[in-house]
Simulated assay, not measured.
Amino acid sequence: MPKVAEIMERDPVTVTPEDSVETVLRALRDHELPGVPVVNEGGRPVGIVTEADLVMVDEEEDLRLPLHIDLFGAQIFLGPVKRFEERFRKAIAATAEEIMTANPITVDADADVREAARLIAERRHNRLPVVEHGRLVGVVTRLDVLEALVSEE
């Protein structure tokens, strides 16, 4: 069984936490990517920005506050506010750090391709950052993993 390092895309496009949302959008568009890892100055993945992080759909488009009642001048929310706060933060985000999904799931470069397949299937990700000693060295996609598994049979 091949290792992830043998099938991964090396030197992936990345952004930094300080990069603007416009820079992230440009990277995704220019390289026709569905997502991009966010790496710190040490080259470690600290987040990932995907198309899903950039698009608000359905009922979330207008960022309605959760249902609430006014009681003695205070608003009492009848539903969870956390989801609204997260969507609002992303809606007004100016940097990659504000819009990214932090602490991305990663796979080691020396891991078996089956391990990458398991992570992709369990987490329902299309792309996984590949690390070596904690530093980003590549990206492996669902298609890369499927092709490797099929070629093994």
Rank of each mutant, 00 (worst) to 15 (best):
V39S: 00
N40R: 00
R83M: 03
E51K: 14
V81K: 08
A52H: 08
E98V: 04
E86P: 06
T101P: 02
G42D: 13
E61R: 15
A93Y: 09
R29K: 11
P80S: 15
R29G: 08
I69C: 00
D53M: 02
G35T: 02
E85K: 12
D58Y: 04
Q75P: 08
A52I: 08
F88V: 11
L67V: 10
A93L: 08
R89V: 02
R26C: 05
E51S: 09
G43Y: 03
R89D: 13
E97R: 11
E85D: 11
A96L: 01
G79R: 14
A94N: 13
G35D: 09
E60D: 15
A52Y: 09
L78K: 10
L67T: 11
K90N: 02
L28H: 05
G47M: 00
I99R: 00
F77S: 06
Q75G: 07
F88K: 15
L65F: 03
G47W: 02
D70K: 12
G79S: 11
T101Q: 06
I99S: 02
L28D: 01
V49G: 05
T101E: 09
G47Y: 05
A94Q: 14
A94D: 12
L63P: 07
E51W: 00
A74M: 12
L63W: 07
M56A: 11
D62F: 12
T101W: 08
D70F: 10
E32I: 10
E98I: 04
A94C: 09
P80L: 09
N40S: 07
V55Y: 10
A91K: 13
P34D: 13
Q75E: 14
F84T: 05
L65K: 07
L65D: 03
